[in-house]
Computed example of a mutant assay.
Amino acid sequence: MADAESGKALSGLLNGIAQSKYYGNTEITEELLKTELYAELPPDEFRALHDKMRGIIKSIVSADMDLNQIDAFLTAQTKKQGGITADQSLVIAKFWKNHKKKIRESVINQSRWENTLKSLKWRVDVKSQSRHTDQGSSSTAIVEMEIGGKDKEAEFLCLELNETKMNEMLKKLSEVEESLAALTQIS
Rank of each mutant, 00 (worst) to 15 (best):
M1F: 05
E5T: 03
G7Y: 06
G7M: 08
K8V: 00
A9R: 15
A9C: 07
L10G: 03
L10Q: 02
L10Y: 03
L10C: 06
S11M: 12
G12M: 06
N15I: 01
G16C: 02
I17D: 09
A18C: 05
A18G: 09
A18I: 02
Q19T: 01
Q19V: 01
K21V: 14
Y23V: 08
G24S: 07
N25K: 06
T26M: 14
I28K: 12
E30N: 06
E30M: 09
E30P: 02
L32W: 09
T35K: 13
T35R: 11
L37R: 02
Y38V: 02
Y38D: 03
A39I: 11
A39F: 06
E40M: 07
L41C: 02
L41P: 00
P43M: 05
P43K: 13
F46E: 03
R47H: 10
R47S: 14
R47F: 08
A48F: 11
A48W: 12
L49P: 01
D51K: 13
D51I: 07
D51S: 14
M53I: 10
R54G: 07
G55Q: 04
K58D: 08
S62V: 04
D64S: 13
D66N: 15
N68C: 09
D71M: 10
D71A: 08
A72P: 04
A72D: 13
F73D: 03
F73V: 03
F73N: 04
L74T: 02
A76G: 12
A76E: 13
Q77M: 14
T78F: 09
K80F: 09
K80E: 12
Q81F: 07
Q81S: 14
I84G: 07
T85A: 10
Q88W: 13
S89I: 06
L90R: 15
V91W: 14
I92R: 12
A93H: 13
K94L: 13
N98P: 03
N98R: 08
H99C: 10
K100V: 02
K101I: 11
K101V: 12
K102S: 15
K102R: 08
E105D: 11
E105H: 06
E105R: 09
S106K: 01
V107Q: 07
I108F: 05
W113G: 15
W113M: 12
E114L: 09
T116K: 05
L117Q: 00
K118G: 01
S119Y: 01
S119G: 12
K121I: 02
K121A: 10
D125M: 01
D125S: 01
D125E: 07
V126C: 06
V126A: 06
R131E: 09
R131S: 11
R131N: 10
D134H: 11
D134L: 15
Q135T: 15
G136Y: 12
S137H: 04
T140S: 03
T140F: 01
V143E: 00
E144D: 15
M145S: 12
M145W: 02
E146P: 08
E146I: 15
G148P: 04
K152R: 13
K152T: 15
K152N: 15
E153S: 10
A154C: 11
F156I: 14
C158G: 00
C158N: 04
E160W: 00
N162V: 00
N162F: 00
E163M: 11
M166H: 02
M166L: 14
N167Y: 14
E168P: 04
L170N: 10
L173N: 07
S174K: 14
S174N: 14
E177G: 05
E177A: 13
L180G: 03
A181S: 10
L183V: 06
Q185I: 07
S187G: 06
S187V: 04
